[in-house]
């Protein structure tokens, strides 16, 4: 975290593109607005955390942002291991595990395929390459409702309906559209002369990729991994459509826990469950968010 602060403030000092509002009033205004907005943006997370550490009695007595007098992890423990979701009562932990079982292979496979595809699109010209790339790109933007019905049928035919491998397959298929775009946009910024030099030096298709391209690709690899990890982890539509019972990912379980419970709402448990479901992606952003931004600014978003 300290390193992150240092590097970003160093970047701020000698970065172009900014205009200084010289007046003192301007600085006060800027910091005032930023601080206020930052509070508004942080409040929901803070409230979620505080609420998850309270008992229901304390929630009723206090308010959204009041501090818990006796912080307790009881709600966390309960939703992690004991709450009833649907007909089973084992808490979120199984679903949390499911999400990992889905996310890790889906991310790895889609990033790897995207890297290969992006390499081909960026540096090996062939007839209609731009059109084909455009067709893949369009796949990033389709509303997934359009594929739900036939995909359910396909997974059924493959014997993968309701299973975790089925979900992995779905996420890989629709993930490669994004990863291909990321890598292609990054790789076209690599000077063509480098590829020519490699060909003259006798490097083939894979040698160029693994020896020359991959070692300089970590920014876009980070972007793709973060994008895919968060995208797959946070998915709800595919999970609720294609996963059955105990194979569901944590987002679906969270929704079931929160929105199908009967009786009075246990907000502390809702918040604890939401925290659990959100933690992996929040941690990834805290740890690697600056790579994500940097990579995104460098390559993925050019226009």
């Amino acid at each position: 975290m300290t390193a992150m602060l240092e590097s970003s403030s160093a970047a701020a000092a000698n970065r172009p593109g900014s205009i200084r509002w010289s007046k003192q009033f301007g600085r006060v205004f800027v910091y005032g607005c930023l601080a206020l907005l930052a509070l508004v943006f942080l409040a929901p997370l803070l409230s979620m955390l505080l609420t998850s550490l309270k008992s229901m009695d304390e929630i009723r007595a206090g308010n959204l942002l009041s501090l818990p007098s006796t912080p307790t992890f009881a709600a966390w423990a309960n939703v992690w291991g004991a709450s009833c979701i649907g007909v089973t009562c084992g808490g979120l932990k199984g679903y949390f595990g499911n999400s990992f079982l889905i996310v890790v292979p889906a991310t790895f496979i889609s990033v790897a395929l995207g890297a290969f595809n992006g390499y081909v699109f960026a540096q090996w010209r062939f007839r209609g390459d731009n059109l084909i790339f455009g067709l893949i790109l369009f796949g990033c933007f389709i509303p997934f409702q359009i594929v739900l019905i036939p995909m359910a049928g396909l997974l059924g035919k493959l014997g993968l309906a309701g299973t975790i491998p089925g979900l992995i397959l779905v996420h890989v298929v629709y993930g490669i559209c994004f990863t291909t775009m990321f890598f292609r946009n990054y790789f076209i910024t690599v000077p063509a002369e480098i590829f020519k030099a490699a060909r003259v030096d006798g490097a083939g298709f894979w040698a160029i990729f693994f020896r020359i391209l991959l070692p300089i690709s970590w920014p876009i690899v980070m972007v793709s991994i973060i994008w895919q990890f968060t995208g797959v982890w946070n998915d709800f539509l595919f999970g609720v459509s294609f996963a059955a019972g105990t194979n569901q990912p944590v987002t679906v379980a969270l929704n079931n826990l929160v929105n199908t419970s009967t009786g009075t709402k246990a907000y502390n448990e809702d918040m604890a469950a939401a925290m659990i479901a959100a933690l992996p992606t929040i941690l990834i952003y805290v740890a690697a968010g600056r790579y994500f931004l940097r990579g995104l600014m460098a390559g993925a978003v050019k226009g």
Binding site: E193, I194, A197, V200, D201, G202, A203
Partner: peptide
Amino acid sequence: MVFQSYALYPAMSVEQNIGFSLEM
């Protein structure tokens, strides 16, 4: 061939750059 932009492989050391064709 020697290129206008030199086209050195960014991730390799000078030694690896020079030796790359022999390695290939």
